[in-house]
């Protein structure tokens, strides 16, 4: 079970949280202008990397706030947590990826 550092509540068990999938996928400003494949890409396609993944979590059994997590999908190491709207921090993603 992951120990997730909620930016507002501190480290808590994974069971208090829900994962909202890959982060940094902004909703297109004008969906009507997108082709069907472009819209499908926004709607369905996700990276699913082996390595560092930036994803959204919500502390659903706690403060109910959403935030971003950079998590290594193999080691499950949490490299960073940061607030919504903030850019992903430097996590040394490349070197971490090589670790696998």
């Amino acid at each position: 079970m992951l120990l997730i550092p909620c930016p507002w509540c501190g480290p808590r068990d994974e069971t208090e949280f829900s994962c909202g999938g890959e982060g940094h996928i902004p909703r297109p400003a004008d969906p009507a202008a997108l082709t069907d494949p472009e819209w499908a890409d926004y709607l369905f396609m996700r990276k699913n990397p082996k390595g560092v993944h930036t994803e959204r979590w919500v502390h659903s059994q706690g403060c109910r706030r959403w935030f971003n997590v950079a998590r290594h999908t193999v080691s499950h190491e949490i490299l960073a947590v940061y607030k919504m709207g903030e850019p992903p921090p430097e996590t040394g993603a490349d070197s971490k990826q090589n670790r696998t």
């Binding site: 829900s18 909202g20 902004p26 909703r27 959204r56 919500v58 659903s60 109910r64 706030r65 959403w66 919504m84 709207g85």
Partner: peptide, 13 residues
């Protein structure tokens, strides 16, 4: 409620 909160907190800040 969770759905509305998600949009408010992640998209329409």
């Amino acid at each position: 409620l969770a759905w509305l909160e998600m949009w408010l907190q992640t998209e329409w800040l």
